[in-house]
Design a protein around this nucleic acid. Structure first.
Lengths: 194, 194
DNA sequence: GTCAATTAACTATGTCCATAGTTAGATTGT
DNA sequence: ACAATCTAACTATGGACATAGTTAATTGAC
């Protein structure tokens, strides 16, 4: 159900086509919530059916048209209701921890290689998160900027601070993963090399 | 596909019935990997069909029987292959971060209440993780103890250290969440109260 | 002028996962 | 004696999600 609210959240910034949304998801939104096209398009249709969004046909080139989705009052009310509803804690389901608990079943070289890949992945994540965080702070992030244009300074301040707060959480998470990976290398050195 | 390997991992400790496994999952295993009955039983059947496990009918009481699942050599080889295969990074899909990014849409009181609930949840998680970690270190954890009985001291040391390592990662994760939640309270104080 | 890349909007299939049951024998407490 | 609880092994249904396509118009590069 969270995809629905991720979509409303994104569309509060500015109206978008399914394609725009898909691109946003594969760029910055996926840091907070990942979804592929095959989930986005059907969900947009269901949301329009449920009255949370309305689509407006907009011409595109000479013959083409595209559908721009706008959040309705119902959609916004639904979003606020969800925002104030209790959070369902996520179940643990990260294969990295499962594997780590059984590293003794694998060859140390293969383990080291996996840790290197994990480190590369999280370093890249961290770099991207810090990059996006900076565009939030200086208000140059495109979707955020569109939303801020509709708000007064006090509201804009709140919107920016909470987005930065969310990114700070993601950044802390990435740093924690990297520290854990570094501990993993140290543990391998201790157990297999010396 | 990771459920399959979580099941083999668990069964390397000792043979178990589906019911034993289900109980283990709702106790300690769910820290590393969560799964309900409705996933466990069908997956055990598929794994037996695929030759990764064999089930042995064991009498239970006067008339009843139960099926005890054992890991086959094929199953163990499959597990080792998975352990050495590259890890697929998990996509971000935690509603907590999505919500945090849009806290300005919710009433500050409702936000505070959610942060309190999150804090309670993660404090409880942390308490349980630290409790289980202690039973790993002193080797009193039942499933681990069963597995250690089959290993020599060197192998046992490795098995224990990697399990503790995995739990240390989970504990660090829980602490990071708690620190982020504390930052959330501080941010609310700054933005709404003073 | 044409060819590749991009924009747009999907669909199809299968697995994963959550919620909520069911059926039946065994054990324990009173 | 019998009720409550536990052990055991499921099933049914629907939604979430991944992977991998399809079709067609538009725009930009050479």
């Amino acid at each position: 159900m969270s995809l629905r609210y991720a979509l409303i959240a994104l569309l509060t910034g500015r109206p978008m086509t399914g394609y725009d949304i898909s691109k946003s998801f594969s760029r910055s939104v996926s840091h907070v919530w990942h979804a592929p096209d095959s989930q986005i398009y059907p969900e947009l249709n269901r949301m329009e059916r449920d009255g949370l969004l309305i689509s407006v046909e907009v011409p595109w080139g000479k013959k083409g048209t595209k559908k721009e989705y706008h959040v309705t009052d119902t959609g916004l009310a639904d979003f606020r209701a969800w925002m104030e509803s209790p959070l369902v804690p996520q179940r643990q389901r990260d294969p990295a921890y499962l594997k780590a608990a059984y590293f003794d079943f694998a060859d140390p070289k293969a383990v080291r290689e996996q840790l290197r890949q994990q480190r590369t992945y999280w370093e890249e994540q961290l770099r991207m998160l810090e990059g996006t965080r900076a565009t939030l702070v200086d208000r140059s992030h495109p979707t955020l900027a569109a939303r801020l244009a509709k708000l007064d300074e006090r509201e804009a301040e709140l919107a920016v601070r909470f987005k930065v707060y969310a990114y700070d959480g993601l950044i802390a998470h990435a740093r924690t993963e990297l520290a854990w990976i570094a501990d993993g290398f140290a543990l391998l050195d201790e157990l297999y090399d010396s």
